[in-house]
Write a protein that binds this DNA or RNA. Sequence first.
DNA 1: AACCAGGGTGATG
DNA 2: CATCACCATGGT
Length: 272
Amino acid sequence: MSGVQIPAEFDLPQTLDCGQAFRWRPTPEDSETWCGAAYGRYLTLRRVGNQLELDCSQGDMDGVWRAYFDLSEDYARIRGELSGLSPVLKEAAEFAPGIRILRQEPWEALCSFIMSQNNNISRIKGLVNNFCRMFGGQIPGTGMRSFPGPETVAALSLEELEPLRSGYRAPYILDAARKVVEGEIDLQRIVREPTGYGREELRKIKGVGPKVAECALLYGFHKTECFPMDVWMKRAMAQLLPGMAPEDFGPNAGLAQQYIFHYSRRHPELFL
DNA sequence: AACCAGGGTGATG
DNA sequence: CATCACCATGGT
């Protein structure tokens, strides 16, 4: 068990339940404590006063979770910069100032957002969790399974994938795994190269268009200028920020997008 | 029953 | 380049 001084701008529900990751949930025993898994590890965490408390070794804290929760980034500074771009964006940021952009594993983010297409968030959560339960490896000492790696998925047949009930997305999932395993798409190179390279590469996968690629790049490759435009964002941009385009938000457009997305979903009455 | 959901593809103007 | 039917599934 280890604790860290948390940055002011870090709220667990805002960050873990804002639609960027699909495996985090409050524990049944205590709704303030969240649990989930990433990088093959299970974790529970909670806010205790001004501290963030993680049930993990110091080694995992420094080697995994500090990066995963992007704890070295100054979100107060970024929020300030974004707030200067538009009064509406400022208000959206003030509504959920504790949102952070997680650094998820590239493959998990890519695969999860392939499953997300034309689905609602609650069903995406179900799909992703069933996917892990059916095909992921057990995490020792927990009931949780890790997100199945591309090698595992590439070895599956459509028949084996059918019980997942992912519909027409099943062949997309297999195509992504196959292209990654065969080296046709190099995820680690996408991490290193500029964003444009990743946009081109990811869209070679069947079922990966502009929106899914943008989500994978933002959440799985930490390409922070990416700005996913889904149905909510199209409505929100037209209604709340008319005349503004993704490029107008700069190198941290991805966080601006999360502020707007979250704000819009929590204010559905704005779009009647 | 019809419509929607963090869309993409392929065909057609 | 813009539009559009269609895609599988589960929830209203």
